[in-house]
Amino acid sequence: MDLIDRYLNAVAAQLPQDERTDITAELRDLILSRFEAKEEELGRALNEDEQEAILREIGHPLVVAARYRKGPDSLVGPELFPYWLFGVKAGLMVLAAVFALTLFIRLIGGSDNFGQDIAQAFHGFFGAGLTLIGAATLAAAIFEHQGIRPAWMTKWRVKDLGAFGLADPAAWGMSMTGTEAAQPAKTSWMPKPRAKGWPGGEYLFSFLAVGMFVLWWIGVLHFPGLLSIELRGEDAVVSGAPIWSILFGPILLYAFAQMAVDLASLVRPYAVRARAAARIVIAGAGLWLTWVIFEAGHWFTLTRGAETAWIEGDWTMLNFDTLRTLGDGARDLAGVAGTLSVVMVWALAFSALSMAFSVLANLARLARGR
């Protein structure tokens, strides 16, 4: 088998079966014409090295075969690459925030091995990051080779572009510090900037915080020392009252609803009316949960050896005289339970007020549209 046959066989192996004969015949004619032109120029037959040089000029078999293949010849083409890059950057930054927050909670929770926790966080981040990049590349390759173009690529709207701040590290910093983003040079037709920093920042951190709560609520994440109280002598163990088991599902659904609204707000931070309507419903559900918890009256139990004390309360504790005596109780089990009972009553009251204010504020936003 001469060089031309070997070359054409390598090209044919990369081509569809039904096209190989025609394409290799066309290539053979091209190669032979190049050989003949070179032989005429030199006045003699070409040796093997000279034939190799001409074949290299024509191109590597993989490259030549790609010229004849139908469809895209890259995993992620130039049209999809900017979307792929944004998805990877934004996803890596979200992962970094999640792993950093998890590491921070472990450290402040009384970690026994500082170095191991940091190593695990980095290992988890790089593993999750590689998985993210692989998934994004696979999705982009499917889009590229199947000619899929989702509506958000072709029918986008300027007011829905807020989520693109996810890929801007500076925007994350500004959303945390409250500083104002650098604005482009103003012209007479440009409107006044609508907000400071990245408008999706507050929703991102709310999403992450509620996500951490969900992981703790379902038992995936543990905070050492959270369910114990230091007393003189033996520490007291904190256990939940039956009301928390009864409301486990509703509270989990409430948290998922909050995360869904935050996620939607990341994508469309200027969809004010839709977000306001959703937050009214969520705040109403939160008010109902707060009322049910308050009416239960018994929230936690402190146990130290054979001794127990309840963290409990009712409406009669919502007075300033009770609040003024906060912290004056003894440091025994009953005294600590009494202090925590007052704290719990007022915390539930402030939670209810906050949610009621959220309903009113979002009603106003719903009416104004901003």
Results as ranks from 00 to 15, higher is better:
residue 255 A to R: 02
residue 234 E to A: 09
residue 176 M to D: 02
residue 1 M to Q: 02
residue 312 E to S: 15
residue 15 L to G: 01
residue 338 G to K: 13
residue 142 I to D: 01
residue 219 G to F: 05
residue 227 L to C: 00
residue 60 H to A: 12
residue 346 W to L: 13
residue 261 V to C: 12
residue 283 A to Y: 04
residue 238 V to I: 15
residue 74 S to N: 09
residue 145 H to L: 02
residue 10 A to Y: 00
residue 324 R to E: 10
residue 62 L to D: 12
residue 133 I to V: 15
residue 279 R to M: 14
residue 297 G to P: 01
residue 68 Y to V: 07
residue 291 W to L: 14
residue 252 L to F: 11
residue 40 E to R: 12
residue 43 G to P: 10
residue 33 S to E: 11
residue 272 V to G: 02
residue 360 L to N: 01
residue 138 L to G: 02
residue 357 F to Q: 08
residue 317 M to H: 09
residue 269 P to A: 14
residue 23 I to K: 00
residue 319 N to F: 08
residue 261 V to P: 01
residue 317 M to T: 10
residue 181 A to R: 15
residue 217 W to L: 01
residue 194 R to W: 07
residue 325 T to L: 11
residue 295 E to S: 11
residue 261 V to A: 14
residue 180 E to L: 07
residue 270 Y to K: 12
residue 356 A to I: 14
residue 117 D to G: 05
residue 191 P to A: 13
residue 16 P to W: 04
residue 7 Y to K: 07
residue 145 H to S: 00
residue 340 L to Q: 07
residue 16 P to A: 05
residue 87 G to E: 09
residue 331 R to Q: 12
residue 209 A to Q: 01
residue 308 T to R: 12
residue 260 A to F: 15
residue 79 E to A: 09
residue 180 E to W: 08
residue 291 W to G: 05
residue 78 P to L: 05
residue 269 P to K: 06
residue 191 P to M: 08
residue 158 V to H: 10
residue 359 V to N: 11
residue 142 I to S: 00
residue 292 V to P: 04
residue 273 R to E: 14
residue 281 V to A: 15
residue 125 F to Y: 14
residue 2 D to V: 00
residue 275 R to I: 06
residue 131 T to R: 06
residue 120 Q to N: 12
residue 176 M to F: 15
residue 99 F to T: 13
residue 160 D to F: 04
residue 228 S to I: 08
residue 362 N to L: 06
residue 239 S to E: 13
residue 125 F to R: 04
residue 354 S to E: 00
residue 112 D to K: 12
residue 130 L to A: 13
residue 287 L to K: 04
residue 75 L to C: 02
residue 350 F to T: 07
residue 7 Y to C: 09
residue 68 Y to G: 03
residue 311 I to Q: 06
residue 95 L to M: 14
residue 311 I to R: 05
residue 134 G to P: 11
residue 333 L to S: 14
residue 311 I to H: 05
residue 89 K to A: 10
residue 168 D to T: 07
residue 133 I to H: 03
residue 87 G to V: 00
residue 99 F to N: 11
residue 41 E to K: 12
residue 330 A to S: 14
residue 138 L to V: 14
residue 147 G to N: 02
residue 86 F to V: 06
residue 32 L to F: 04
residue 148 I to W: 15
residue 113 N to P: 00
residue 125 F to E: 02
residue 117 D to S: 13
residue 286 G to K: 11
residue 44 R to D: 00
residue 192 K to V: 11
residue 305 G to A: 03
residue 255 A to M: 07
residue 39 E to M: 04
residue 171 A to F: 08
residue 222 H to Q: 09
residue 259 M to Q: 14
residue 127 G to H: 04
residue 311 I to F: 03
residue 284 G to F: 02
residue 229 I to Q: 06
residue 235 D to N: 13
residue 264 A to S: 15
residue 87 G to W: 03
residue 318 L to W: 06
residue 186 K to G: 00
residue 359 V to C: 13
